[in-house]
Design a protein around this nucleic acid. Sequence first.
DNA 1: CTGTGGTCCTGTATGC
DNA 2: TGCATACAGGACCACA
Length: 278
Amino acid sequence: MPELPEVEVVRRGLAAAIVGRSVTDVTVLHPRPVRAHPDGPTGFVTSLTGRTFDVPARRGKFLWMPFRDGDALLAHLGMSGQFRLDAPAAPLQRHARVLIDLDDDVQLRFVDQRMFGGLSLAPGGAELPVQVTHIARDLLDPEVDLAGVVRRIKAKRSAIKRVLLDQRVVSGIGNIYADEALWVARVHPETPADRLSTHTLGALLRAARDVMEAALAQGGTSFDALYVNVNGESGYFFRDDPASAGNGAPCERGATPIRRVAFTNRSSHFCPGCQRRR
DNA sequence: CTGTGGTCCTGTATGC
DNA sequence: TGCATACAGGACCACA
């Protein structure tokens, strides 16, 4: 599933292909991924056609493609969304949902199996779509205020893992990177956020940033076939950490079996030996 | 306001 | 074999 590094890889792929290109036609194959347009898919098609793309931007896992007129096409890949660049005549991917024809005979395709992702028009959103204003800066953003993020985390009593996943506090961290950062920093996922020291929280954020940078350097993480770049290629960054280890696999820092526990409708993997509750 | 848990989706894996 | 169920998970929303 795409997380921040994967979304950045996609952004770069789009940047190389769509800047200066105009939309000549739009086809909505499934209405679900077209979000929040007052006139539905039909209005969405009408409002995109004829516009010219500028350089794609990203914050956390939100990606947007500004138009030169100041509006933007906003996208979120959800769990299974992909952007693909294909010849218009190329066979459709099984879960192709929206097709955007460009003026250089390339078709930008939004493909999404589970449809947690979606596209929407962001009027005036070239700089920052209104749908993204509540999303905090991510850890790869040069302007992110790490000390400020630490202060915001310390002000919360929720479990640290839930806070790490709260995109209003710091964006771009998903379930797997949260588990990995917690493991690196030896923090139990259910520790109340306000019980952690500034030092530990700093280490936790650095761990999250480091692994995302490493994944980005490798072209994104390949967990499964659901993440590919715009050319349909998987990343090459495979990790051996608690999050990708199965329940019961030994922790690499010792022999303690990794435990899987339910966590707000998903799961956490952690080592009961080196990630103690405090 | 804060914190929590349910919901949207479909394909794959597992269990009976 | 075939059917049913669990599970994966980001963002959002309703509710206490």
